[in-house]
């Protein structure tokens, strides 16, 4: 079952990823994805159980508590906000009464 990325599928992926793919870009992406996913498809014939995860990592924990003084980073972080009201980040309304 080698996957095919159809134009509609690429558009759907773009919407999920919060991107727009232009009409000019679309056939290029479709052709490239065909080749790339075709190559990646070799994994499907691999005789290996999916989901066996034996990566050599372990959880690490820190002591509970305040990681830094309150407000230590506020000024620098707020400075980067594209839209703000005081020290608050300002975004468009998601719900409206209209």
């Amino acid at each position: 079952m080698t996957a095919h990325a159809t134009p509609d599928e690429v558009k759907k992926l773009a919407a999920l990823a919060r991107l727009t793919v232009s009409e000019e870009e679309l056939p290029v992406f479709v052709a490239e994805f065909e080749a790339i996913l075709g190559y990646m498809g070799q994994l499907e014939t691999l005789d290996i159980a999916a989901g066996t995860d034996i990566l050599p990592y372990a959880n690490t924990f820190r002591t509970e508590g305040a990681p830094h003084e309150k407000g230590a980073w506020t000024r620098d972080i707020v400075k980067a906000f594209p839209n703000k009201e005081g020290d608050s980040l300002s975004v468009k309304k998601i719900l409206s009464n209209d």
Partner: peptide
Amino acid sequence: AYYRKAVAARS
């Protein structure tokens, strides 16, 4: 088919 298989191949 893709991601989980890749993780297994990595292991």
